[in-house]
């Protein structure tokens, strides 16, 4: 038994070492750094201790951090439910129709395309002068919109792109969840005279709850960390992302800029921990809300 245990540990060792070096060590290091001031130009052990100053600074004295927090919250609150609602709608419309596989593929294409490439294309589509969207609006007699160039519309423009790009992955999961629901339930409901909306409301939605929980939690965690679309769409270069006037600044983009543009790794680490606790808290709330009332089995 002892030799089998040893063998198991030996087999696990490479993965554990990898996990320790590339996950545990950075996580612990960044916790240490979040209480220090370090610019990455000196050895980390020479970093000077600043106690809670990084945390108090970002939460009390840094308006850009609070703006980034708000923007990220808006991004999460709008993009995640919208993307999932559209995925459910599409899956319902496609369900039991011809060419469903083809439609799934079409919707999945943006998901399998790198976000940076999508963002670059959308940036050109959104260009105030000569952009395709404004050209079409002008052709329809509507004045050009500033899209990404105006703080009032920039974040929403990015959310539109992110939702469009995110539907595909949600659609695949939701569609798989829908196809798992036994056909007999719908047949029985039809015999009882239930129409389409009633069947959706009383059969599809309750039985889809575990699937929706999964896409909500994973989608929310990913949305809190939005980075690639912001960079690709708001800046010719990484360091200038988040504009105009911080209107699209998100937590992870600001964290990156704080660390690598402003040379303040300690403050960026503190931001990372604030984000970590927010994501944990939101995920726990989501789990609690979804599990309330139980989950339908079939």
């Amino acid at each position: 038994m002892r030799s089998r245990t040893r063998a198991a540990w030996l087999f696990l060792l490479p993965a554990l070492v990898f996990y320790a070096v590339f996950l545990i060590f950075p996580v612990v290091s960044s916790l240490y750094l979040s209480f220090h001031e370090w610019n990455m130009l000196t050895p980390p052990l020479q970093a000077s201790s600043v106690g809670m100053q990084n945390y108090t600074h970002i939460l009390r004295q840094d308006p850009v951090f609070l703006k980034a927090l708000w923007n990220t919250l808006v991004f999460v609150a709008v993009s995640v439910p919208l993307s999932i609602a559209l995925a459910v709608l599409m899956a319902t419309l496609m369900s039991r129709r011809r060419f469903a596989g083809l439609w799934r593929l079409i919707f999945l294409l943006p998901t399998i395309t790198p976000a940076i490439a999508l963002g670059m294309v959308w940036r050109y589509l959104y260009r105030p002068n000569y952009g395709l969207i404004n050209t079409l609006l002008n052709a329809a007699g509507i004045a050009s919109q500033p899209w990404l160039n105006d703080p009032a519309t920039a974040l929403m423009s990015i959310i539109i792109t992110a939702v469009w790009a995110g539907i595909g992955s949600n659609l695949i999961v939701v569609d798989a969840g829908m196809r798992d629901i036994p056909e007999e339930y719908y047949e029985a409901a039809a015999i009882d005279g239930a129409h389409g909306w009633q069947r959706f409301r009383h059969i599809t939605l309750p039985l889809l709850k575990p699937t929706l929980l999964f896409v909500f939690v994973t989608g929310t965690i990913a949305a809190w960390q939005v980075f690639d679309f912001i960079v690709a769409m708001t800046a010719p270069t990484l360091g200038r992302a988040g504009g105009p006037v911080n209107s699209t600044m998100t937590l992870v983009v600001y964290m990156y800029q704080t660390a690598f543009e402003y040379l303040n790794m300690g403050r960026a680490s503190a931001m990372a921990y604030v984000l970590f606790f927010i994501v944990i808290a939101v995920s726990l709330v989501q789990l609690r809300v979804f599990w309330r009332g139980g989950v339908e089995n079939y």
């Binding site: 850009v64 105006d150 703080p151 504009g243 105009p244 006037v245 911080n246 800029q257 543009e261 402003y262 040379l263 303040n264």
Partner: peptide, 20 residues
Amino acid sequence: QGAEIKTILMNEIMSAWYGK
């Protein structure tokens, strides 16, 4: 912190450009 200082000033100048 010249880069950070300059970015802050840029954003505030632009907030005036945008009429905010």
